[in-house]
């Protein structure tokens, strides 16, 4: 093969390796940063009462929707209580609840705790299966000895 390039073979290889290294380093940096900053921890009501969660940190709160706790306000505002039967947390949510949201059923909500002691959710999840108990919820409730699901 003719050397028809201005660069030597070694230089070319170094350029390629440098480019690849840069991309990889940037990607690893991004992933690590995002994993530190952008993940959301799952908490049960007991966890929230026991630990102090920094203001404004997003968490997922899961448990059962307490019976007779759902009240609806104007413009799709909903308040309800999420409980693990030991502790409970009051939740405020503005929006449409999922089809399978029911009192006494498992639910996962995502949002932030505010200093007024209310949990402001911007996302409420209940999956599309009538027997579905979100896995986190089932585990948390099992921990409290409430949920006796099939193993």
């Amino acid at each position: 093969m003719k050397r028809d390039s201005k660069m030597t073979r070694k230089q070319r290889r170094l350029t390629m390796i440098a480019a690849a290294g840069t991309v990889l380093a940037v990607a690893v940096g991004l992933i690590l940063f995002a994993l530190n900053d952008q993940i959301v921890f799952f908490q049960s009501p007991s966890d929230i009462v026991a630990k102090t969660i920094p203001d404004g940190q997003r968490i997922r709160l899961g448990g059962l929707v307490a019976e007779d706790s759902v009240t609806r306000g104007e413009n799709a505002e909903v308040r309800f209580t999420v409980t693990d039967t030991v502790e409970s947390v009051n939740v405020v949510y503005v929006g449409l609840l999922p089809d399978l949201f029911r009192e006494g059923q498992g639910v996962v909500t995502e949002g932030v705790m505010k200093p007024d002691g209310l949990f402001y959710a911007d996302n409420v999840l209940a999956k599309h299966d009538e027997n579905y108990m979100p896995k986190e919820v089932a585990d948390a409730l099992k921990g409290k000895g409430v949920w006796q699901g099939k193993e």
């Binding site: 990607a27 940063f33 994993l35 993940i39 799952f42 995502e110």
Partner: peptide, 18 residues
Amino acid sequence: DEKISVGPPFFNLTFGPL
């Protein structure tokens, strides 16, 4: 045994810039 969820923010921050 720690439960977390990796949602859209993670992917927007990593996948997007790439």
